[in-house]
């Protein structure tokens, strides 16, 4: 478990990480999401002891990373943005070195290397020089290094950047697998990736946490209503009039720029009331071609949160949110 309290990091006048606090619970996959330069890498570097903080505290399984760095680092496996590989070593030599540096016993090293190699799919290349491997394989060596010795927490900085689509899929499924045994923190600026892999999402923008929740909750929180898009044939005004009779309908917009006598209606409602809408249209003899629910997706939430430079929340929302956070985490544990 990691506790981060009021972590601040300044580079001269520039504040890269601005007094952020969060807790990482055991056994879950966390995603750090944010545009480039938001402070993801800086935060990860501080948690892993590669960088010092200007202010604040990072406690890993009870060990302060600044006061007891060696003990804290033993709980962590880290893959930086650029995999830190000694390219003139073979995969096996490299993993042996990392094992020794992690303070593993000889027997532990010889027992855990085959395990890690199998997990990361490196069995065929163990005796090859790292510099001869493709980018995807090098990334796997980086991950193998991080999970060697079974650290409780695995931190991966942009693990899929620069890989081809097939490799991305493979690495993602590997990370999901890791999540069953380790606590995983990964960073990414790709939304679909984070929403696909992670249990919890922490959105960072301009050095501040602007949201931290599960993917569903995030979407739920920002979607108090749905918009139903209906394509009708015939008079759109008549359709709108009929639909407006429903209590749940909040607002209707008409787009009659379509050809072939068709128009689109955008019905804003509290919930998904497609069945009721269809009933009314049929009762009124209006022909409708299609009906879709449009939800604001994570993409919209992300843009909304990060565009404002972290001011998407008002102070009240922040306070309300801080209150709910703990409850949600407890739910997560159950």
């Amino acid at each position: 478990m990691i506790e981060v309290k009021n972590l601040t990091r300044k580079y001269g006048e520039h504040t890269a990480v601005d007094s952020i606090s969060f807790n990482i619970e055991d056994g879950r996959i966390y995603g750090f999401l944010g545009p480039n330069g938001a402070g993801k890498t800086t935060t990860m570097n501080i948690i892993t002891g590669c960088l010092s903080a200007t202010d604040g505290q990072v406690i890993i399984n009870g060990h302060d990373i600044f006061d007891e760095p060696v003990k804290a680092k033993k709980c962590i496996g880290y893959l930086p943005e650029i995999p830190p590989l000694y390219t003139d070593m073979t995969v096996l030599e490299y993993l042996r070195f990392v094992g020794r540096a992690k303070g593993l016993k000889r027997a532990q090293i010889s027992a855990s290397i085959p395990d890690v190699v199998a997990k990361t799919g490196l069995s065929d290349v163990t005796n090859k020089l790292i510099k001869t491997l493709s980018k995807g394989y090098q990334q796997r060596v980086g991950i193998a290094q991080a999970i060697l010795g079974d650290p409780q927490i695995v931190i991966l900085d942009e693990p899929t950047v620069g890989l081809d689509p097939k490799q991305i899929v493979e690495i993602r499924s590997l990370i999901k697998e890791l999540g069953q045994k380790h606590t995983v923190i990964l960073s990414s600026h790709i939304l679909s990736e984070v929403s696909e892999i992670c249990d919890e999402i922490i959105i960072i923008s301009a050095g501040k946490i602007v949201a931290s929740d599960s993917a569903e909750n995030l979407m739920g929180r920002f979607n108090s209503h749905v918009i139903i898009e209906i394509t009708v044939k015939g008079d759109p005004d008549r359709a709108a009039e009929a639909l407006a009779g429903l209590d749940e309908v909040l607002e209707i917009e008409i787009d009659d720029s379509l050809t072939g006598g068709m128009s689109k209606l955008f019905v804003k409602a509290d919930s998904d009331i497609r069945a009721e809408l269809a009933d009314i249209l049929v009762q009124n003899g209006i022909a409708y071609i299609s009906m879709n629910v449009e939800r604001a997706n994570l993409e919209d939430i992300f843009l909304k949160l990060t565009d404002n430079g972290g001011e998407a929340f008002t102070a009240e929302e922040d306070a309300a949110y801080a209150g709910t956070e703990e409850n949600e985490e407890e739910e997560g544990d159950e």
Partner: peptide, 14 residues
């Protein structure tokens, strides 16, 4: 240059 210093920093080494 090779950015392997990051590895050395993150390993449990003094």
């Amino acid at each position: 240059k090779q950015k392997t210093d990051r590895l050395l920093y993150s390993l449990p080494l003094k």
